[in-house]
Design a protein around this nucleic acid. Structure first.
Lengths: 224, 224
DNA sequence: GTGCAACTTTGCACTGAGGGCAACTTAAAT
DNA sequence: ATTTAAGTTGCCCTCAGTGCAAAGTTGCAC
């Protein structure tokens, strides 16, 4: 089974089985992305992906529960590293600052390239929104965990709202920054474009931190 | 077809066809909700719903593209009225205040009852999250429209981020308030519970308006 | 190495979603 | 009443997703 317990020992050398599984997983997402490029969203089947990845249809489902899930694993990968970055921040830092730092740290070509391509390929069609929304929501849940940990165990019921609202808003703003960036730049990955993405991420978190005070405050960002 | 142009004349008396369609639509969601109650999420098929609603399986798909969609129409209904309320607010009012008003206006038994039941019935299982997330996202898009209209046509590129981030955050906070409320109260629809929901909605918008300043500000809400 | 145990892949078969199409039924219009 | 448009249904197709059991691999002990 794919879902059995992995060694959970980060220090140990990955066994052959682990490597094979990782490779297969990668082959699947590569194949899926390739077909998306070649045929467009909705115009290929799970069997197509399996063939392209050199595995059987049935095995595909051992790894992913759907075509969408396979493609969304790209988004998951990105967001997971974002969460990793977030957890590295000092616990006494304001969450918004941590989020800013974690996100801008990821605004480099290698990390955003697959994401950018995926977005440009699927922007027009709602066939991917499902898993994409889920990926963001999964990330939100993890930000929620981090936020709750930071507030310590002393949280009464009031903090529930605070933590829920904050984590949700952080995700919403991160999403907003990415969306605006894609709308403006498309698949442009030049340093100038990436620096604009960083600025957008910073600005969106700043908006959150200042309570969205009137649009006059918009003069903050002048980056293109 | 279901998707043909409705008269779009709100003054005219609804024709027989319109009435039939509305009735069928309602019968479907009723049947779906009934089956959800009776069998639990994931334990019934489209055919079951069609049978219960007294229509053919094929006709079901003329109205909804999936079981999820049929159930999510409940959420859609709620959020659509929320948007309606939002559009009724004066255009020069701060958006956060408008959102607060629109949402709290809907915190009455008739409006939230179906929603509350749906949430309690599906909270445990991820079988509904798809359409639910979509419903919220659809609502976000509409808040986005309202926000853009309010900022007038003079919006340069900076406003894009502002509007995206703001509408996304509003939705996130509305969601947060509802989620906290369901977690605390479950399907409780007593006036005390509803007033707590109202307070939560107000508080979450307030958090957004104050930039989530330190948890010390949490003492605002003391409502149970 | 040999062999066993655990894990993984695959084929097969089955249920059910979703949609195209044409025949049929019902409401509206003249 | 007759024609026309809108809606319903049955038939049939493809494809998603899953359980099961028979293979094929890898890990480990001897």
């Amino acid at each position: 089974m794919t879902s059995s317990t992995p060694p959970a020992d980060p220090g140990a050398p990955p066994s052959r089985r682990e490597l094979n599984k990782a490779a297969t997983r990668q082959a699947i997402t590569d194949a899926a992305l390739g077909l998306l490029r070649a045929k467009g969203p909705g115009n290929f089947t799970v069997e197509d992906i399996a063939d392209a990845a050199g595995i059987s249809r049935r095995t595909f489902f051992n790894y992913f529960s759907s075509t969408d899930a396979a493609l969304a694993s790209i988004v998951h990968g990105f967001l997971d590293t974002a969460i990793q970055q977030l957890r590295l921040r000092p616990a006494d830092e304001p969450l918004l600052v941590s989020a800013q730092a974690a996100l801008t740290a990821l605004a480099d070509p290698e990390a955003v390239a697959p994401l950018a391509e995926l977005f440009t390929l699927t922007q027009q069609s709602p066939l991917m929104q499902h898993s994409e929304l889920e990926a963001w929501d999964h990330c939100r849940a993890q930000v929620f965990d981090v936020a709750r940990e930071r507030l310590g165990g002393s949280h009464g019921q009031q903090e529930d709202l605070y933590v829920h609202a904050l984590s949700g808003s952080i995700i919403a703003c991160g999403k907003a920054a990415m969306e605006v960036w894609f709308n403006r730049r498309g698949p442009d990955l030049t340093p100038a474009s990436l620096s604009e993405l960083r600025q957008l991420l910073i600005d969106s978190m700043a908006l959150l931190g200042t309570g969205f005070t009137t649009p006059a405050s918009l003069s903050t960002s002048r980056s293109s």
